[in-house]
Simulated scan of single mutants.
Amino acid sequence: MEPALGTYLTTIADLDGKGQEHRGHANPISQTVQRSGQTALVDSCANTLDSGSWDKKTGERLTQGSARDNLLITLKIAPDGVWKVAGTSYRDTPC
């Protein structure tokens, strides 16, 4: 399993255990890609205001994303030639 997928599944299970769920998605603003050999870095800026966590029972919104999330995604090419997410990190400064 890809590391990012494992992290995502753990987060979803954690929310579920607390009676919460994630809703929404990121809306891309800009993105650049730098490739070096078998690694690629994706520098992404996205609006995530529509995403967050909600209480499953009451429907109350508990968290909200940001207008400008600054995300760095690391991709590695697998032996089968498919690019896979190796890691993600949010930067503290808005993009």
Rank of each mutant, 00 (worst) to 15 (best):
H25T: 15
N27C: 00
Y90W: 11
Q38R: 13
V85W: 06
L5R: 14
W83S: 08
L71F: 06
L75S: 06
T39H: 00
V82H: 10
T58C: 02
E60I: 05
I29R: 04
G59E: 12
D43S: 10
A4S: 13
K56G: 05
G52A: 05
G52R: 05
P94M: 03
G24P: 14
C95I: 01
T32I: 04
G87M: 07
Q38T: 15
L49G: 01
C95L: 02
T88S: 09
S44V: 08
T93F: 04
T58D: 07
T11K: 00
R23T: 15
D80P: 05
H22I: 12
S51R: 04
N27L: 04
M1G: 14
L75K: 02
Q34N: 14
K84F: 02
C95M: 00
E60Y: 04
G65I: 04
M1N: 12
I12V: 15
S89N: 10
Y90V: 07
D14W: 09
R68L: 02
T10Y: 03
L41V: 15
P79H: 08
P79D: 15
L71I: 15
T88E: 13
G59N: 08
T93Y: 08
G59M: 03
R68W: 03
R91K: 13
K76S: 13
D14I: 04
L72I: 14
T11V: 09
Y8C: 10
I12C: 00
Y90H: 09
T7V: 09
L71S: 10
H25N: 12
G6H: 06
A46G: 07
D50S: 15
M1H: 11
I12P: 05
R68F: 05
L62D: 14
G81I: 10
V42T: 09
A26Y: 13
T7C: 08
T7I: 09
T63W: 03
